[in-house]
Amino acid sequence: MLSLVLDQNYKEYFKNNRKNFQEELLKEAVNVREKIKDILMIGNINLLENAHKLVMYTLGEEKEQLEDFARVEGISWASHNLTLAFKLEWVQAIRRTLWQFLQEYDIENQNQFEIIDFFYQLERKVNDGIDQFLNVFFLSYSEYKDKLIEAQRVLVENLSVPIIPITQKVCVLPLIGQIDSTRVHIIEEKALMEIGRLRIHSLIMDLSGIAQMETEVIDHLIKIIDGANMMGCHCVITGLRPELVRKITRLGLSFENKAETKVSLQQALEDYLATK
């Protein structure tokens, strides 16, 4: 009963001294206070209002509301790329200021606890509540970031293998930039999948944007051509640079009998659009 009465009294005390609490909190959070307006503008996140919510949920032991609040905060901070260091400093400042005000309340009301263990119960409740918020917040933040990174990875993979339909039967696969072992596997998966899905008869693979390839990548590219041929798709290679040709011939590899070669993508398109 004593615990319940004091819990309610503490909550009322914080409501009545909300402005003083915020002023002390801003003194504690030295680095964050300079960013409060920026954070509000960037993510529509009111740090002072949210600090009050955290205190009320903690004092009231409203665990479900506290966890829901932490999840929303985690997603909000992650989606707006707000710095975790600021959040940690802010929450720890809330913890310190909260204890300061609890002590002031007890001094003002000359609380004499008949049960000394109550103080330790209060300490556990406050710290457990704050820690619970931080744990759920960081989990929510990390999960959202992981999903965002995965979505961006898939987007980059799709953009890195753009198969462009020219006619119903002819498509172009322009390859640019660095192709490593990871990307060549993505190219293989996407190319063969699209050949089957679009029923491509001729796939023009333009390599004019690639100057160098590792040996294993060249070997894998030839296997992709073999796979396309097995699916009934004729491959055309365009834009081979001299340095890449020299490396392919030194390795004893060849596209002969596997794919047709053209000087440029423009030539291939002129030939195919004229005859296909």
Rank of each mutant, 00 (worst) to 15 (best):
W90H: 02
N16T: 06
E114N: 13
A85H: 11
L47F: 07
R153T: 06
D226I: 14
L198T: 06
G43N: 01
L59T: 03
Y272M: 08
F101R: 08
L98R: 00
K262A: 01
E61R: 11
K19E: 15
L155K: 08
P174T: 00
I224E: 00
R124L: 12
H201F: 09
K223G: 12
M205Q: 10
R246T: 15
L134V: 04
I36K: 03
D117M: 12
Y120E: 13
H52C: 09
I237L: 01
I116H: 15
D206S: 00
K223E: 14
V263I: 11
I187W: 07
T261I: 05
V263P: 05
D206N: 01
M193S: 12
W90P: 11
R197S: 14
S79M: 06
Q103Y: 09
K15S: 14
F118E: 04
H185T: 13
D206Q: 07
E67Y: 11
M230S: 10
N109Y: 03
L48T: 01
L84Y: 06
L6E: 12
K27A: 11
F113E: 10
V156K: 08
E28F: 00
I130D: 00
F255H: 06
V91S: 05
M1Q: 13
A85V: 10
R96A: 08
N229K: 08
I224R: 03
S208C: 03
I107D: 15
I149Y: 07
T167K: 11
I222F: 04
I149A: 13
E270M: 11
M205Y: 09
F118T: 09
Y10M: 08
I200Y: 00
L134N: 02
T275G: 08
M231L: 14
G60H: 08
S142W: 11
E24T: 06
K15F: 11
R33W: 04
G129I: 05
Y120G: 13
L207F: 08
H220Y: 07
D226E: 12
I195L: 03
L88A: 11
N109S: 04
Q92R: 08
S202N: 09
I130Q: 01
I163W: 07
E49A: 14
P242L: 05
G74C: 07
I36R: 03
W90E: 05
I186D: 10
I116R: 15
C233R: 00
F101M: 06
M1D: 02
R183D: 11
C235W: 12
K37R: 12
R183W: 03
